[in-house]
Write a protein that binds this DNA or RNA. Structure first.
Length: 553
RNA sequence: GCGCCUGUAGCUCAACAGGAUAGAGCAACGGCCUUCUAAGCCGUAGGCUGUGGGUUCGAGUCCCACCAGGCACACCA
């Protein structure tokens, strides 16, 4: 159990005791929030509970604090507490506990920081899921980094995580893609044909068509259009999917499952979900189409499930898909990561889940704001169909993977993001990620030197670590578990980037002030333990973020 | 027009479900390498947290109104 939690309990018990003895009025307790004071002078943990209780108890906060204090029985990790105006109770941890944590980190290695929050619960994280009709663009990169990091974090927090990419391999856009590609192919073969009105206009389609010409020649010319369309569509899809997979690999992202939309129609999920909706009588036929009456379920309007031409909409597929996640595969929680342009879709899907008898709270959708791309001062507009896009590949050819991940990760999903390609390229060398990795490499270098000098330190005495830089460093190390906790609970992996930077700052400062390998044999051994623990924590944090922890730079 | 997100230092962003003096990086300025990596350290400067009300012992954070930007409101996905 985290120390934070133990403090929470000891406060709760103290209030209950005080209330039992009649020293405090019997009011209901609010949630007890334990935080880290900004100023170290106030100790390691702080709680403003007396302030929160002042109103309901009609007593001055300082009086409440003193009453609580009378009955506090401190957990072993805490050395002392203090009451501070206007009504805080501050706690300071035992040095022995901090020293023990260094040993704990050394013995646990990179499993340090892992938690049992999820208790093995099965959770799915679905992300990217871009249509295989064109290359990934920069925005998809953001979703990919967000999703893969979140999956790592949840896994560390004790969930059984599966990652998934939903492949839209059927439907209107795929038909459109086929026709666009076929037109480009015919053009490559010297035919004078026009592209479909709303077709995919990007130059990559020309390159793709030429690529197919190289490989297949005029083979597709000599077959009926119907057949050629299907054939070329399949070939094109596979090639683009291959590209998408390469892009994701460059970004260090992979998936446990690639889920094909088409299979929803082949394996019955679609029919089952639709039948269930009909049974709940929230499906009607009107205006020559099949609708779900979402308006009677709390939405603004009804939505079409099956078009006039008999083909299901994306929404219908999505209902079947999520039905599959919960009803067939039994995930207890599902996290979807979508671009903000799908924002409006969230309540509809949740409403449909409720109609299927699935608790909508089991589905959590994280929408990330769109990436605005700049080249210098100029804004680049993104549109796959018009083709004027900056691809993820283009970005990755210019900006290194770890740097790219760090930039995407260091903004909260809610905030719109400016990604200046020029800047990212130019500044790649002083991106914060290198600052963090440099700290790791520096430690590796110290440990190499210790090895060269044949210094054994497993008998090192960590209680020799008493100076400010040393204790500050240990205090930073022990924040890893709660950083994982908050990132996993809030589903906000950007906390990791800030923790990583803090860790590096504290280490670099320690490094400047404390020589590790010195003539003081005993101190050398204890400091070697400390820096090795630091290396573990840095490495773990970098790995959670999907970045490398280099031994040298 | 309805809804969602955002507005914090010159720029890019944080602020741990309301807390103590709002923090980093970059850019600017001034110092620090005969010792384990200077991709580093130490310091200076930079703010009416978009505006106006409200709730609270306490508001960047919650509520209302307004201003500005983004997204979305399809028988596209």
């Amino acid at each position: 159990m985290l120390v934070k939690q133990k403090i929470r309990f000891c406060l709760r018990d103290a209030v209950a005791t005080a209330q039992g003895k009649g020293d405090l009025p019997p009011v209901e307790l609010p949630e007890i929030v334990i935080e880290h004071p900004q100023d170290a002078i106030h100790g390691d943990f702080a709680c403003g509970l007396p302030l929160k209780l002042a109103r309901s108890m009609s007593l001055p906060p300082m009086n409440i604090a003193h009453e609580i204090a009378k009955y506090l029985s401190l957990p072993a990790e805490i050395a002392r507490f203090a009451i501070a105006k206007p009504g805080f109770i501050n706690f300071t941890v035992q040095n022995t506990w901090l020293w023990n944590q260094v040993e704990t980190i050394l013995s646990e290695g990179e499993s340090y920081g892992n938690l049992d929050l999820g208790k093995g619960m099965r959770i799915q994280v679905e992300f990217v899921s871009a249509n295989p009709t064109g290359p990934l663009h920069v925005g998809h990169g953001r979703g990919a980094v967000l999703g893969s990091t979140l999956a790592n974090v949840l896994s560390a927090a004790g969930y059984q995580v599966k990652t998934e990419y939903y492949l839209n391999d059927i439907g209107t856009q795929i038909d459109n893609f086929r026709q666009s590609l076929y037109a480009r192919y015919l053009q490559s073969q010297g035919k004078n044909v026009a592209l479909p009105e709303e077709g995919y206009m990007g130059d990559y389609m020309i390159a793709l068509a030429e690529d197919i010409c190289q490989e297949y020649g005029d083979k597709l010319l000599n077959m009926p259009e119907e057949k050629a369309l299907l054939e070329i569509g399949q070939i094109g899809l596979e090639k683009i999917l291959e590209n998408i997979k390469e892009d994701l690999e460059l970004l260090g992202v992979d998936f446990d499952v690639w889920f094909s939309e088409k299979t929803l129609y082949q394996e019955g999920q679609y029919n089952e979900a639709m039948a269930m909706l009909r049974n709940k009588s929230c499906v009607v036929e009107k205006e020559n189409a099949v609708w779900i009456e979402t308006s009677t379920l709390g939405e603004d309007k009804d939505n079409v499930l099956v078009r006039g031409d008999g083909s299901p909409t994306y929404f219908a597929s999505d209902i079947a898909y999520h039905y599959d996640k919960f009803a067939r595969r039994g995930f207890q929680r599902v996290i979807d990561i979508w671009g903000a342009d799908h924002q409006g879709h969230v309540p509809r899907v949740k409403t449909a889940m409720a109609a299927l008898g699935i608790d909508p709270a089991q589905l959590e959708v994280i929408t990330y704001q769109l990436v605005t791309l700049r080249r210098g001062g100029e804004i680049v507009r993104l549109s796959k169909r018009s083709g004027d896009i900056v691809t993820l590949r283009e970005l990755l050819e210019e900006v290194e993977r770890d740097a790219c991940r760090f930039i995407f990760l260091s903004r909260s999903a809610d905030s719109q993001m400016d990604f200046d390609v020029e800047l990212a390229k130019r500044k790649s060398a002083d991106n914060p990620v290198y600052y963090v990795q440099y700290a790791h490499a520096r430690i590796a270098s110290i440990l190499r030197l210790a090895e060269q000098k044949n210094i054994q330190y497993n008998q090192g005495d960590v209680s020799l670590l008493t100076s400010d830089p040393e204790m500050t460093l240990i205090r930073s190390l022990v924040l890893l578990p709660e950083t994982v906790e908050i990132a996993a609970t809030a589903l906000q992996p950007h906390y990791l980037t800030y923790y990583a930077q803090d860790m590096a700052t504290v280490f670099h400062s320690f490094y400047k002030q404390c020589r590790v390998i010195s003539n003081d044999r005993a101190l050398t051994q204890s400091r070697l333990k400390l820096v090795e623990a630091t290396k573990i924590v840095l490495s773990k944090t970098l790995h959670l973020m999907g970045m490398s922890a280099p031994e040298e730079m």
